[in-house]
Amino acid sequence: MTTHPTPTLISQYASGAAGVDDTTIWAVEAHLEACAACRAVLTDAVDPGTRDLLDRVAGGIADGIATGPGPVRRHRLLRTGVAARVLPWLVTATGLMLAAVLFEWTFNSLPSLVLLIAPVAPLLPVAAVWSRRLDPAWELTATMPRTGLPLLMRRTLGVLSAVIPVLAVAGWVTGHSPGLWLLPAVGFTAGALALGAVVGVDRAALALTVAWSAGVVVPSLADGQLPTVLTGGSLPGWALATVALTAVVLVRAWRRPHGPLQNLLHR
């Protein structure tokens, strides 16, 4: 493989190879691909017109690359599907928290509305990302290999990462212990997913919201004091419930990672 083709052969190759058989041409071509010295000889053998053309094309392509549009940016957030339709619900949750803060500032004597609403604030957007009525592409999502709990958990994480900062601001402004709004919010979200795997996430979220409102929010507003479940003493209970429910969801996701969620698929 060390014999270089003669300059005559290379110039014949460059000029269209009249009178040289195909096998030789292939051999020359294979050699040229591997040998820079012979490519230099080839460059000299090509007639000036062709060289001009090649230079022009190379220059044009280089210009096009330099001035043309760059590579398309990847939108990772969109991947979660959260950004798709959930924005209005996030705005609603934010508005709710804002109203709760204002309410708390105005009526000092009443129990903290921020703490009362915080547990159910993420439920609205969580239900929105996994609902037949609100997800326009639900029928497509239902036929995908990557569906079920892992996808739902990914979307839920997206929702939480948007809602928790809002809760944090509301909790900080009103001066409550982070554990009292964070743990219930995460706990209720995990509960909605755990219950949602059985009855459907949107129904589970609705049921939990109604139960919390009827069982805790309304009585405490009527009594005019915070219920004991939202005082410092109940923190270990919230922590335990949150960890347990999250564990239930994770175990389900791990055991049947692609088991179809009933609410979305098989009704």
Partner: peptide, 16 residues
């Protein structure tokens, strides 16, 4: 499902 392609009758999409 990896080997399926499906166009539903009511093709839902994300407008944004």
């Amino acid at each position: 499902r990896r080997g399926l392609g499906y166009l539903p009758q009511h093709f839902g999409f994300y407008p944004r």
